[in-house]
Design a protein around this nucleic acid. Structure first.
Length: 461
DNA sequence: AGTAATAAACATA
DNA sequence: TATGTTTATTACT
């Protein structure tokens, strides 16, 4: 129960519940069993640790422990980082982290050792124990070469990409956005694989980025349905993608609200973040002009590269996170976003998830736009997901918000086509109901990290 | 036996 | 100090 509460607090509870939060009862927070739960996360619910909570420790423990969660570094915020569901990781269950992944024995041994020595470490055996941990770090990287390709997905899950770097990476990634290109290739083949492969192939940073992206993707809807829909309505998707909400609508058909909800959640959360967070917010915020520069900055790098490529990723949703600060400071529950919480069907299937665009996406979009049009300001306004979500009480799910964006988006949506295919393919591949893993390349910017990114990495301007 | 949750220790910025 | 990671313990199935 406590856990639940904690989660509630951590995340925007209301919606979560609607989604199927109930499952949580049994499987608290960390349990992946409840798809619902997962979905919630996927949808973009962010975990925020509340200070002082007794669960805090537990949560942290879980977050770090399970590969399912991805940490997004939030420089802007400061220390705290955001946690998101690892799209891939999310699928499988919890994975015991890297080390163990393959080596049951070893892991066990390790445990044994640990027991024996670890604790004692202070006394003696520190080295060995440490050894383990270090080792674990290795594994952390998805990039670790070989293994990944096949089991990767599993491995992946197992090993959680450590993110800390990711966050920063993300920002970095922003600039690198291009990765998409690579991704495209890979992705075309396998979405999921892409992820892994990318990680493997790509340098750590990139990998991280990917990871980050994935994290972002979390938001994205699931999959199984998507393919269908997508395939069916690739065109639609584009639009929709422009604003996920829409998709939701389409898909929603089956699920109806549920789909939206997720989106909403993401938005909300994201919104909340943004609001709290930093520069991003400012950037995103239409009202705040300053961002533009930033935006531009971002854009510049991006455009050139991604330019057309923006693709579906753009569509990706980003989960917003409620930064702690927000949570604590702003809304106690983190529900800030709740605003829109609308009734969603609890039985949302991951597969059915629609594509949602999260603020991040928007952001990405924005960025894109920005470059495109000199009128960055406008683009920004439109693009800024934050704006939409936050600004409009109505959840993204509502078409309203998107409309404006859509318009702009349409601009590049065209470009998206390629990505779309990619996405579709990927989905098909995943079929399982994975999330879309689009690489948020663009979106990244919007990402929490984005803020960072904006401010840090490439934004250096 | 395996999994999960919590508590605590430890590490790092 | 805050955050994150790891280990150990305990409880449940």
């Amino acid at each position: 129960m406590e856990m639940l509460r904690g989660l509630e607090q951590l995340c925007s509870g209301a919606r979560l519940r609607e989604l199927g939060w109930g499952s949580l009862e049994k499987a608290p927070f960390l349990c992946w069993r409840g798809k619902d739960w997962m979905q919630c996360f996927r949808w973009g619910v962010h975990l925020c640790l509340e200070e002082g909570t007794s669960q805090e420790n537990s949560i942290r423990h879980n977050l770090s422990l399970h590969s399912k969660f991805i940490k997004v570094h939030n420089e802007a915020t400061g220390k705290s980082s955001w946690w998101m569901l690892n799209p891939e990781g999310g699928k499988s269950g919890k994975a015991p982290r890297r080390r163990a992944a393959s080596m049951d024995n070893s892991s066990k041994l390790a445990k044994v050792r640990g027991k024996a020595s670890r604790k004692k470490p202070p006394l003696q055996s520190a080295p060995e124990s440490t050894a383990d941990s270090p080792g674990s770090q290795f594994p952390k990287w998805p990039g670790s070469p070989s293994s990944r390709s096949n089991e990767d997905s599993d491995m992946w899950n197992t090993f959680r990409p450590r993110t800390s770097s990711n966050a920063s990476t993300i920002s970095a990634r922003l600039s690198p956005i291009l990765t998409e290109q690579d991704d495209l290739h890979d992705e075309e083949l396998l979405p999921s694989l892409v992820y892994s492969s990318a990680s493997s192939n790509v340098p750590p940073t990139v990998t991280e980025e990917l990871e980050l992206i994935d994290g972002l993707n979390l938001m994205s809807p699931s999959s199984s349905t998507l393919p269908t829909q997508q395939s069916a309505s690739s065109g639609q998707i584009q639009r929709d993608s422009s604003f996920s909400l829409r998709n939701a609508g389409g898909q929603t058909t089956s699920f109806g609200n549920s789909l939206f909800n997720p989106v909403d959640i993401s938005l909300q959360s994201s919104v909340s973040h943004f609001s709290a967070p930093q520069s991003l917010e400012a950037l995103l915020t239409p009202s705040s002009p300053p961002p533009r520069d930033v935006m531009m900055t971002q854009v510049d790098p991006v455009l050139p590269q991604t330019g057309n490529r923006m693709n579906s990723r753009t569509l990706l949703l980003l989960g917003g996170q409620a930064s702690q600060s927000k949570m604590s400071s702003g809304n106690p529950r983190g529900k800030p976003a709740e605003q829109q919480t609308e009734p969603v069907s609890a039985s949302v299937l991951p597969s059915t998830l629609p594509i949602v665009t999260s603020p991040q996406n928007t952001a990405s979009i924005t960025s894109l736009k920005a470059p495109l049009s000199a009128t960055t300001s406008q683009s920004v306004q439109l693009g800024s997901p934050l704006l939409l979500s936050s600004a409009s009480p109505a959840p993204l799910g509502l078409n309203q918000d998107r409309l404006p964006i859509d318009l702009d988006i349409d601009m590049y949506m065209e470009d998206l086509e390629c990505d779309m295919d990619y996405i579709i393919n990927s989905e098909l591949m995943d079929g399982e109901g994975l999330d879309f893993n689009f690489e948020p390349i663009l979106s990244t910017p919007s990402y929490p990290s984005t803020s960072q990114a904006s401010s840090h990495t490439w934004v250096p301007s």
